[in-house]
Each structure stands twice: as structure tokens, then as C-alpha cells.
């Protein structure tokens, strides 16, 4: 029993930092890419909008593990990245397809009248998007985004297949060494549960804090 607290947990937690880094990188880069795609989808030309629609649709139709491997080998063919960076970037690309959909919906939920009112004051389209549309759309997107964040927390475990030493891989090492797979994997399950739980809690607190009165 003491082995769990003295051996297992400290060992698995050495992978926690990697898990958190992969998650934050995938979510953050996925957000930036997804936002750019969503803006092009809503405000860009017809051609770019249709291309993005098709690409994101294809990404969303495939298993994440398959996409991760595809992206990993595609990236490896072009640049020499460590598995950690290639994995995080791959997860970011996958997540960006979902975040693009979430943000597109949020942008469209801000009525056309808001843009018109901004333009009548003499704002440029860019100013209107930046100062009028986005602040409303991003608030609106938090609940759906929080769902996606939880998915990315869980998906960070996929970089396991690339050999990145995140918590799942650590648990696997531990179980191979001690022949105690259950203890190891249950410990990881608890960690993932806490991470998704805290992510959701944190984001709903943020949503309440940012909610417009009235």
C-alpha cells in the first residue's frame, strides 16, 4: 500500500508535466489555427471557405489515432521534430478542425446587426470583428470549447504511441516492471478524471465571470 504513495504516484506524476504540456500546446495552437480557419470560413472568400469546410469535415470523420499517425509521418517527412513536438502539433491540427466548427457557430450566433451597427459608426471590418464580434462570439463559445478541452486532455494520451513519456506511458512502464497493471492504470484513470473535471470547472467559472449582465 505504501508502495502506491511512495512508488507509483510519484513515478506517474513525472509524466504529468508532459501530459499537461501536450494538452496546453494542442489546445492553444489548435485554438489559434481553429480561430483563423473559422474567421476565413465566415468572413473569407467562397473558395477558402469551401476548402476549409471540406478539410475540417474529413478530419472530423476520422479516428484521432489514425490522424495522429498520419500527421506525425507527414510532419516527419518535412521537418525534423521531436515526437513531443510532432505529437503536440498533430493533436493541435486535429483539435483545430473541431475548434473551427465551434468558433464558426459562435461567430454566426452573433447577429448580422452587430456588424452593421459597427460599420455604420465607421469601423473597418477588421475592427468590427476584433472589437464587436469576437468578444461576443468567444463568450458564447466557452461551453462548447470546454467540451473540446476535455477531449484534448484525454487525447493527449494518444502521443503514447509515439513514445512520448506522458502519464499513460509511465503507467505502462510501471505495470511492466511491477506486474500490477490494475493499480497503475487506475491511478492514471484518476489523474485523467481530475484533469477533465478541473478543466470543466475552471472554464465554467470563467464563463460565469465573463458573462454579460442582463
Amino acid at each position: 500500500m505504501t508502495e502506491i504513495f511512495s512508488g507509483l504516484i510519484p513515478y506517474i506524476l513525472t509524466g504529468l508535466q508532459v501530459t499537461l504540456e501536450v494538452t496546453v500546446l494542442a489546445l492553444g495552437m489548435g485554438f489559434l489555427i481553429g480561430l483563423a480557419l473559422a474567421l476565413l470560413r465566415v468572413y473569407g472568400g467562397k473558395a477558402s471557405s469551401s476548402i476549409i469546410a471540406v478539410v475540417t469535415m474529413v478530419i472530423r470523420a476520422l479516428p484521432h489515432i489514425l490522424l495522429l499517425l498520419l500527421a506525425y509521418f507527414a510532419i516527419a517527412a518535412v521537418v525534423n521534430l521531436t515526437p513531443f513536438w510532432a505529437g503536440s502539433l498533430s493533436l493541435a491540427i486535429i483539435s483545430s478542425a473541431y475548434q473551427c466548427e465551434i468558433l464558426r457557430g459562435a461567430l454566426l450566433s452573433v447577429g448580422a446587426g452587430q456588424m452593421m451597427a459597427a460599420r455604420t459608426l465607421g469601423m473597418t471590418r477588421l475592427q468590427a470583428i476584433r472589437h464587436i464580434i469576437l468578444p461576443q462570439a468567444l463568450r458564447q463559445a466557452i461551453p462548447a470549447w470546454s467540451n473540446e478541452a476535455a477531449i484534448v486532455v484525454k487525447d493527449s494520451s494518444l502521443v503514447y504511441v509515439l513514445g512520448v513519456p506522458e502519464i499513460l506511458r509511465k503507467a505502462q512502464y510501471y505495470s511492466a516492471r511491477t506486474y500490477q497493471p490494475f493499480t497503475a492504470f487506475i491511478a492514471v484513470a484518476v489523474v485523467y478524471f481530475l484533469l477533465t473535471f478541473l478543466t470543466n470547472r475552471g472554464l465554467s467559472a470563467l464563463e460565469r465571470k465573463l458573462r454579460t449582465p442582463g
Binding site: G111, G113, Q114, M116, A117, A118, R119, T120, L121, G122, I132, Q136, T212
Partner: peptide, 15 residues
Amino acid sequence: RRHIGFVFQDVNLFN
């Protein structure tokens, strides 16, 4: 447009 005021039927205040 800066100096052409416009008031909408559906108001369109920035929410």
C-alpha cells in the same frame, strides 16, 4: 460613414 448617424429598427446595441 463616421458622420452619417444610423439608427436601426432592431436597435443593434453592442450586447
